[in-house]
């Protein structure tokens, strides 16, 4: 959900404030180049004016990121004040380069990066490398290898080796309809297939991703925990 409240007089212009709904709450991104006056006016209309009812309701965590704009202390205080006045807002972060903003954007890595679709079986001895994300419509057999600089999605059985983020992207994930990999690699991390009761893992609709403590595997339905933007921008 991106609430765009474009100034009616400048319909084609981006509004000076854009709001992103994330799993953790609302992220307000203030345009770095917009004049302070415009931002304040816009926020006033948004939070206290005719649109205010949009934001009434239960308590919500709020993150405000004003980016690399030049502003004085007073200006910052003025903006913060507008947020603090809203009863149901709990301001969690206020500043430049907030973690909320980072979360939002590092998952939108290179918006225009390439995707590929590979149709066919990746057989033993074959090594395929893709720039960007790749969707395999087929199986990756034992002894077969697929690598991508971005994510890897296998619409089939993943039984060979998959290396996502092979140029160091630790945000990359590996997902498969049937998940029984021989080995998984994300960026510089290597993991043998997790074993359950001494037998190799073989599950359906799972994905692997990196956490602080290493590689983890989870049900694909929870993929939003590492790709929060997917929950709210399915069409983007």
């Amino acid at each position: 959900m991106t609430v765009r409240t474009a100034d009616q007089s400048q319909t084609d212009m981006r509004p000076p404030v854009s709001i992103k709904g994330t799993k953790g709450g609302l992220l307000f991104l203030l345009d770095e180049k917009a004049p302070h006056k415009d931002i304040v006016e816009h926020l006033q209309r948004l939070l206290c004016g005719d649109l205010a009812s949009l934001f009434n309701g239960p308590e919500v965590a709020v993150y405000v990121d004003y980016g690399a704009r030049d502003c004085s202390r007073e200006e910052i205080r003025e903006i913060l004040h507008l947020f603090l006045e809203k009863d149901n807002f709990r301001v969690r972060e206020f500043g430049q380069d907030t973690t909320a903003r980072k979360m939002m954007f590092h998952n939108h890595r290179e918006p225009g990066r390439p995707h590929s679709i590979y149709r066919g079986t990746v057989r033993a001895g074959q090594q395929l490398l893709f720039d960007g994300d790749v969707v395999v419509i087929g199986d990756v057999n034992p002894g077969g290898e697929i690598a991508a600089t971005g994510d890897i999605y296998v619409l089939g059985r993943l039984r060979g080796l998959a290396h996502a983020g092979c140029q160091g992207d630790e945000q990359a994930i590996i997902a498969a309809a049937e998940f029984a990999p021989m080995q998984l690699r994300i960026a510089n991390w290597v993991s043998r297939a997790p074993e359950t009761d001494g037998r190799p893992l073989r599950t359906t609709m799972e994905f692997a991703y990196l956490r602080e403590d290493g590689m983890a595997v989870d049900k694909l339905m929870y993929v939003q925990s590492v790709r929060p933007e997917w929950a709210f921008h399915p069409a983007e």
Binding site: R123, A124, G143
Partner: peptide, 16 residues
């Protein structure tokens, strides 16, 4: 056997 099937897979890839 696993090893024979693996090699067969390899060969199929080369044939294709």
């Amino acid at each position: 056997e696993t090893a024979a099937v693996r090699d067969a897979d390899r060969v199929i890839g080369l044939l294709e």
